[in-house]
């Protein structure tokens, strides 16, 4: 299998330092994409997960990365990096180059690597992920299928068809619903009626709601869900509240700057960094910055398609 410059992954035993390192790696990657867009190096668009790194690292560090499957969405770089760490392959993909993880065909929103998939259609990925859970259940593999939804995705009917079937057939699907506060430019209050949590619960899906950006809490709660599912307990839902620090895509942000500034006080890296040794953090950050930088430079130097 092709590979390139990678960032180290985390599991259930990873220390807070290591969890921080992976989150920092994801953030560095995402910020560099915005920078590359500004420099005119990238075409198309990108949806960064700035502020949502704890979801990616918390969820994937709780999984069996050899066995479990995941379906990500349009905001999937963090999920991809927390799954396989292949920063260089992702850079190449976003740059539309032959060496990309999908040969540049998919780009930012359409990734596939081993047991990880992503697609840019809101809602449509949810029944597919439920079908993956069905396949793994029929095969008796013991794998669980994780799918990432946002608050905006809750407007799509396919989500509820999937809740219904996953519950009816007791499929090992983990619905991770990230409420980052916005569907593109529309605040949650204008697009989600009632309760988010009550939605999977209405189908009999045990649902855990977490209002924290603490990566360890997310890892622990995910682990509990995954362990139950592996024991045959049927689907689970995890509702996570966080805040999208960056714009929806590149520069399209009309939010109140004061609101965004306030969110930076709660963001997952800051929350965790306060508990860590400053020197170790600095060393960790330097190593990740160097790694991501190498991945970026190698990807920039790689050949483009020529026609």
């Amino acid at each position: 299998m092709k590979t390139g410059e990678r960032i180290p992954l985390c599991n259930r035993d990873s220390s807070p330092n290591e969890l921080y390192g992976l989150m920092f790696g994801i953030r560095t990657f995402e910020q560099s994409l915005l920078d590359l867009f500004q420099r005119g190096v990238l075409a198309g668009t990108t949806h960064t997960c700035l502020g949502q790194e704890a979801t990616a690292v918390g969820v994937f560090s709780a999984l069996n990365l050899e066995l479990d499957c995941a379906f990500s969405n349009h905001r999937g770089h963090g999920h991809f990096l927390a799954y396989c760490g292949e920063a260089e392959l992702l850079y190449l993909e976003v740059m539309g180059k032959p060496g990309g993880v999908c040969g540049g065909r998919g780009g930012s929103q359409h990734l596939q690597h081993r047991n990880l998939y992503s697609n840019g259609i809101q809602g449509g990925i949810v029944p597919v992920a439920t079908g993956i859970a069905l396949a793994e259940k029929l095969k008796g593999s013991g794998a669980v299928s994780v799918v990432f939804l946002g608050d905006g995705t809750l407007g799509e009917g396919a989500v509820y068809e999937s809740f219904n079937i996953a519950a009816l057939w007791q499929l090992p699907t983990l619905f991770v619903i990230e409420n980052n506060g916005f569907a593109q430019s529309t605040p949650c209050a204008l697009e989600v009626a009632g309760s988010i949590r009550a939605r999977p619960e209405a189908f009999g899906i045990p649902t855990t709601e977490i209002r924290t950006t603490n990566v360890e809490t997310i890892r622990n709660e995910t682990s509990r869900c995954v362990d139950a599912m592996r024991d045959g307990a049927g689907p689970r839902a995890l509702v996570l509240h966080n805040y999208r620090l960056g714009p929806h895509s590149k520069g399209d942000d009309n939010r109140d700057p004061a609101e965004i500034r306030a969110a930076w006080d709660q963001e997952p890296l800051k929350v965790l960094r306060e508990r860590l040794d400053t020197t170790e953090v600095q060393l960790m950050e330097a190593a990740q910055t160097e790694r991501i930088g190498r991945a970026r430079e190698r990807a920039l130097a790689a050949p483009r398609y020529e026609y």
């Binding site: 949810v126 029944p127 597919v128 079908g131 859970a133 396919a158 068809e161 999937s162």
Partner: peptide
Amino acid sequence: AIVGLANGLALR
């Protein structure tokens, strides 16, 4: 969802 499930089954 029927075709979505089938997609997931086929992928796996």
